[in-house]
Simulated assay, not measured.
Amino acid sequence: MLTKQHIIKYLSLTILLLLCWLEHYNHFIMRFIDSALVQSTLVYASSRTVNAAISLLQSAEVGIGIASIQPAQLLDPVNDLAEYMSDAMRLAIGSLFLQRILYTISSGVIFSSLFTVSVVAYFICEWRNFLPNLRHKIMASLILIRFLVPAVVLTTGLVSQVFLDEQINQQSEIVSEKV
């Protein structure tokens, strides 16, 4: 007899199986990763440009008689901020490239076929009550491999949009005004 838990489990596995083969889902995740890569690269490039411009200004000296000063040294905190931002963006770009590679591998035809065969085998083993511990571990591992990267990408993107985008834009405007 099928319990409510069994029905939810079978329905969830069927939905994951459909998502595995759904091209719109795969393209959506890839576009999301590519969009984040472009945004991170633009922020990295702009922070490196600000850093280079301030470094160039800081190298200029103004000399009056025996004394010389470097007025652009006042921009040192902004220069440090640009360096920190570029370092953070370098890490973000590396993380996004790694996520893109992992998603490309896990969303390929070979892995999708393996996932499909595993789901069918899981249903058969569940019906026959064969290898209960092993089937759950294998299925959990394959679900994590196939759907963990998209889940991480989507949740970090949504958290960023909801909580961080406004603050990032405000900080960017402040830095732009100071520069």
Rank of each mutant, 00 (worst) to 15 (best):
N133L: 09
A121W: 01
S172Y: 03
L22F: 15
F123R: 04
K9F: 03
I138L: 14
F163E: 06
K137M: 04
L19F: 04
R90W: 00
T41D: 05
S141H: 07
M30V: 11
K4P: 00
F123W: 11
G65V: 02
F123I: 04
I15A: 15
E61Y: 08
E166K: 12
L18A: 09
L19P: 03
M1L: 05
R48W: 00
L134K: 13
Y25V: 11
E173W: 00
H27N: 14
N133M: 05
Q58W: 04
N129K: 12
L18M: 11
Y103W: 08
F130Q: 07
V159G: 02
S141L: 07
V149T: 15
V119K: 03
Q73S: 11
M89N: 03
R90F: 02
I15P: 00
I168G: 02
Y25Q: 07
S12C: 07
R135V: 01
N133W: 07
A92N: 13
L164G: 04
I138P: 00
E83T: 07
H24F: 12
F163K: 14
F28K: 08
I69G: 05
Q39N: 11
L17G: 15
I174W: 06
L114F: 08
S86L: 05
K178P: 01
I8P: 06
I66T: 14
A92P: 03
L17S: 15
M1R: 10
I110P: 01
R100K: 15
H6S: 11
V162I: 12
A45L: 04
S95I: 01
T14M: 11
L74M: 05
L144D: 09
D76Q: 10
P77V: 03
S160L: 00
Q39T: 08
Q73R: 15
I29Y: 05
F28C: 03
N129R: 14
E126A: 08
D76W: 04
A82L: 05
Q39C: 00
E83Y: 01
Y84C: 12
K137F: 02
L131A: 09
K178I: 15
D34H: 12
L74P: 02
E126K: 10
Y122Q: 06
S59C: 00
I145L: 10
L96T: 02
Q70Y: 05
L102Y: 13
S172I: 03
V50Q: 06
P77E: 07
L37K: 15
